[in-house]
Every structure is written in structure tokens, then in C-alpha cells.
């Protein structure tokens, strides 16, 4: 474990908590893409199948459990408890356009052709594009609530910090996982224009609005 990965995990945890609290306290999921949340729940489910078979550390197991519980709780709140506030008209990105190609790629490009490894690879590729429905929804509505932009900033920062972690691990341990690195770079690049808007607008106290 290194400081970059720890900060990355905490940023990820912060993002998940911010979103869950936003929905729970405002009792509304306006402006949030339920499809992205479903994809994130799928990412954690396919990635953490080794939760009970492969003990790394208390930290590792606890974080996996927290991510799984929070992601399913968010999906539950969005599609059941606060369903009336879910903006399905603007959350129209076709998830199958992501899941099918990612599923195919996971079969073709992986480290080891075993079920657990292919599912892990699938979760890595899927996580890289899982935010697209959310970014697409913001581009359609042309704006995002400030709390949602904080959520996205924390979520985007997490994988950017992981990239620094991978550079650090390469030089200190000689460890690198090309699949995770390439997917992590794609994932972070997808946030770039949002990062620009966040830093130039939200940090100046303005509303995050996309140029129509």
C-alpha cells in the first residue's frame, strides 16, 4: 500500500458516500444516472467475487464490502425508494452498448483465460466506461447540481491517483498490470473535460453548466 493508492481509495469512498448521502438526505436522485450506478454495482460484483476466497487484509475486505453495500444501496434508492425522482427521460444511454463490447474484449484480452480472471478483466474494462451514462446525462440536461459535480470530481480523482500509484509501484516494486493501467488511463481521460469545467466553474462558486 502506498499513499497514492490510499488517497485514491479514500477519494473513491468519499465519492460513493457523497452520492449516497445526497440521494438519502435530499430524498431525490435528480441529475444522477441510474444506469451508471447499475454499471458500478456490476463492476464491484464481478471484481470482488474473491472477497471470501482470497483474504488480502482487513482493509481490503472491509473496503470491498463497503463498496458493494453502498453501490447496491444507491441502486435500490434510485430505482425503488426514490423512483419518482429518477429522471429516466435524460438517462437514456444504452448500457448494452457498453456491456457487450466490454464483455467481448474481456474474453479476447486478459491475463488468464479463467472465469475469475475474465470477470475481473470485465470489471476493469467496464469501470473505465461506466461513467459515460452519467456524463451523457449531464450533457443532455446541460447542467449538474454542485453536489453531483463534487461526486464526479472525487470519482475521477480516484483513478487518476491510482495511475500515480501504478507509476510508484512500477519504480519501487517493478509491478505493473497493463490491463488495469490502460483502462485506468481511458477512465481518467473521460473525466478531463469535466475536470476542466469543475476547476474553472465549480471551484469559483458557479453552477456547473455545459456550453449548450
Amino acid at each position: 500500500m502506498n499513499i497514492f493508492r490510499l488517497l485514491g481509495d479514500l477519494s473513491h469512498l468519499l465519492a460513493i458516500i457523497i452520492l449516497l448521502l445526497k440521494i438519502w438526505r435530499t430524498r431525490s436522485c435528480a441529475g444522477v444516472s441510474g444506469k451508471s450506478q447499475i454499471l458500478f454495482a456490476l463492476v464491484f460484483t464481478t471484481r470482488y467475487l474473491d472477497l471470501f476466497t482470497n483474504f488480502i487484509s482487513m482493509y481490503n475486505s472491509a473496503m470491498k464490502l463497503i463498496y458493494l453495500v453502498c453501490s447496491y444501496a444507491t441502486v435500490f434508492l434510485m430505482y425503488f425508494k426514490f423512483k419518482a425522482t429518477y429522471d429516466s427521460n435524460h438517462d437514456t444511454f444504452r448500457m448494452e452498448f457498453l456491456v457487450v463490447p466490454v464483455g467481448g474484449l474481456a474474453f479476447l484480452v486478459n491475463h488468464d483465460f479463467t472465469p475469475l480472471e475474465i470477470l475481473w478483466t470485465f470489471s476493469i474494462y467496464l469501470e473505465a466506461v461506466a461513467i459515460l451514462p452519467q456524463l451523457f446525462m449531464i450533457s443532455k440536461t446541460g447542467e449538474a447540481e454542485t453536489i453531483t459535480s463534487h461526486y464526479l470530481f472525487a470519482l475521477g480523482s480516484y483513478r487518476a491517483l491510482y495511475i500515480v500509484n501504478w507509476v510508484f509501484r512500477f519504480y519501487t516494486e517493478g509491478f505493473f498490470d497493463l490491463i488495469a493501467i490502460v483502462a485506468g488511463c481511458v477512465q481518467t481521460i473521460l473525466y478531463c473535460d469535466f475536470f476542466y469545467l469543475y476547476i474553472t466553474k465549480v471551484l469559483k462558486g458557479k453552477q456547473l453548466t455545459l456550453p449548450a
Partner: peptide
């Protein structure tokens, strides 16, 4: 390159 070790990252 060497196969990635145990999946110790989240």
C-alpha cells in the same frame, strides 16, 4: 512482463 501478482488492489 511477469504476470500481475495477487490482486491486492481494490
Amino acid at each position: 512482463y511477469d504476470l500481475p501478482q495477487l490482486k491486492d488492489e481494490l
